[in-house]
Nucleic acid binder design. Structure first.
Length: 411
DNA sequence: ACCTCCCGCCAGGCA
DNA sequence: TGCCTGGCGGGAGGT
């Protein structure tokens, strides 16, 4: 991570540090965890970790350790102009969590264009500027899939070729292209590519179950659905197809919980209560309404109904940027590409993107998830009301003033 | 009782 | 061989 270069950054770093402190385990709990670890019966180890401990100290709450909160803190820590490269180790250390959790976060963030994997252990921060393009591409792909122009990216597809039970036995030849193994490429179905081997690799199959791909498919549901609310059970069914085993479904739902929490913390979706059932559903905060005539760009309008929570609905126009978007997109793409090589060009590119996106980011302090509620309320009151926002401007607002709002509260 | 989701084991991949 | 990556499901916390 680049060194902070201004007092604004110092504020942001301080906020992130405070957030990280908040996230970090109480010492007592850490000790407890260690003891628990030592006491773990080996019989439990067959394919499973193990939950918490009984008689856990009351100071500990699992809400303090949620993926959503972690994601918020992650964003607070890295959503700054001078951040370009993120090391997983340093992130884990800064946030006081295990690496494993960082993988969960970055996989989801990468799926929505906020990060790009640069190298082993290394990611490039694209920021929220990358989200619209990622969503637009997702949507375009989803529509192609829907219209049959592209094969769907679902597990139904892979299941048809290889069931979960037999995947160890039927492996094809590795095709050897290491980078194409990564999510950014595999987001386009491997079989999209002409000449792609029909035979599925073990790694392909693994990828199909990846959190990143699942995130994209989950998001695609929202981008192409007529309704804008879906429960995780429904989502699991849609993504998995009917007739899957109970355990399979349960695993999928677990993962969807993980994803939903991260996306909630990014305010891309929000949790809503579904009428009679106890189970909540999730609503997309960027409701896509009608496709524009040219190149599938979508126009979005704010949801007609009132947003249930008091969250800022900044994701409302995520798929819509009317400003010279092609320029913007290509810049971001370029940045992602240049990431492979690094260098000053990347920095220049990023600066160009940011200057195009507006000035607000420059003079605004980046509050963390715990920034004063009053400040946010003030913005809400003083700023655009839902339904009155103009698209390009809104996107600037969104990308410039992201405030993680994750709350693991009951709806 | 059921939902939510943290936790960490461990397998696969890569250098 | 050791490290990175991340799927996975047990089981505890929360409602």
């Amino acid at each position: 991570m680049a060194a902070p270069s201004s007092s604004v950054h110092e504020v942001a770093v301080a906020a992130a540090a405070a957030a990280a402190m908040e996230y970090a385990l109480p010492q007592e709990h850490q000790q407890h965890q260690q003891q628990k670890q030592q006491a773990r019966p080996r019989a439990m180890l067959a394919g499973a970790g193990g939950g918490g401990a009984k008689g856990r100290h009351h100071a500990y709450s699992r809400k303090d350790k949620s993926l959503g909160l972690l994601c918020s803190n992650f964003v607070v820590l890295y959503n700054r102009e001078d951040v370009e490269s993120i090391g997983l180790d340093e992130a884990a250390k800064s946030l006081g969590v295990e690496r494993r959790r960082i993988y969960d976060i970055v996989n989801v963030l990468e799926s929505v264009g906020i990060l790009v994997r640069k190298a082993k252990n290394r990611y490039t921060w694209i920021g929220f500027d990358g989200v619209p393009m990622a969503l637009r591409e997702l949507k375009e792909r989803a529509l192609r899939e829907k219209s049959g122009l592209a094969p769907p990216q679902t597990e139904q597809q892979s299941a048809a070729l290889m069931s979960d039970d037999e995947d160890d036995d039927k492996l094809g030849n590795p095709d050897g292209d290491v980078e194409s193994e990564k999510l950014s490429e595999t987001a386009d179905n491997p079989s999209d590519k002409p000449g792609a081997p029909r035979c599925r690799l073990r790694s392909d199959h693994r990828k199909e179950k990846s959190l990143g791909l699942l995130t994209q498919n989950f998001v695609k549901l929202f981008l192409t659905m007529e309704v804008d609310t879906v429960s995780l059970d429904e989502a699991a069914k849609l993504l998995l197809g009917e007739g899957h085993e109970e355990t399979n479904m349960r695993t999928k739902v677990r993962r969807l919980y993980d994803i939903a929490n991260v996306l909630s913390s990014l305010n891309l979706i929000e949790k809503v209560q579904q009428g009679d059932t106890r189970k909540p559903a999730f609503r997309w905060l960027g409701r896509v309404v009608k496709p524009n005539a040219e190149n599938g760009v979508t126009i979005t309008v704010p949801p007609p109904r009132k947003i249930l929570s008091n969250k800022r609905a900044f994701g409302t126009e995520l798929t819509n940027i009317d400003m010279p978007r092609s320029n913007l997109d290509s810049k971001i793409q370029k940045k992602a590409k240049l990431t492979q090589d690094g260098g000053d060009i990347l920095k220049n590119c990023k600066l160009t993107v940011q200057s195009r996106l507006g000035q607000s980011k420059k003079n605004g302090i980046v509050y963390g998830p715990f920034h004063p509620a009053g400040a946010r309320k003030h913005e809400l009151d003083g700023g655009n009301k839902p339904g009155q926002r103009e698209s390009a401007e809104d996107w600037e607002t969104f990308s410039a003033s992201f405030r993680p709002q994750y709350q693991n509260q009951a709806p």
